[in-house]
């Protein structure tokens, strides 16, 4: 069994869907980190069978909306003195900006310079978003 030391002060991103850990790792630019970071892939999970985990030995400002958008089942644990002081359960954010791009070639976002791609959640159960400008549907599960 792989052993990773517990961290003193920092963040544990837990219950990441297997395979998504690397995506979050890259999004948070942890490959450039000068502090201790662990990416654990395919760990055993009682809840989901398998999961990815990221442990970060540092204080870090994380965009929870973005994380929720990548995987709403993620749990973010804030660690102080080796103990969890806060557990944050994520959900799909109501709005996402500059994360996904509208694929509709007739949408204004396809031609305007500097426009921010914005999506609004319209169905939480099915994870369906729509482009704020042209109403093009984006399904979280693809």
């Amino acid at each position: 069994m792989l052993n990773i030391n517990s961290i003193t002060k920092g963040i544990v991103i837990d219950h990441i869907k297997p395979g998504y850990g690397i995506m979050i790792f890259e999004y948070l630019k942890l490959d450039k980190a000068d502090f201790t970071v662990a990416l654990i892939m395919n760990a055993t999970s009682k809840k989901y069978g398998r999961k990815d985990i990221i442990k970060i030995e540092n204080e870090l400002d994380i965009d929870l909306a973005m994380l929720g958008f990548i995987d709403p089942n993620i749990t973010v644990n804030i660690i102080e003195n080796e103990k969890i002081t806060e557990k944050i359960n994520l959900s799909l954010p109501d709005r996402v900006e500059s994360i996904i791009e509208c694929k509709n070639p007739r949408c204004i976002t396809s031609v305007e310079r500097g426009i921010t791609h914005k999506f609004v959640l319209i169905d939480e159960d099915k994870g369906i978003y729509k482009c704020e400008y042209c109403d093009q549907i984006y399904s979280w599960e693809g």
Partner: peptide, 27 residues
């Protein structure tokens, strides 16, 4: 009026007078 879908919505964010969509593509 604009050929691109959503252009009036985008434009209205920069207008401090009322903006009416007179047709945006097939939208």
């Amino acid at each position: 009026r604009h050929p691109k879908e959503g252009a009036p919505r985008y434009g209205s964010q920069y207008s401090d007078v009322p903006l009416i969509n007179a047709g945006d593509g097939g939208h």
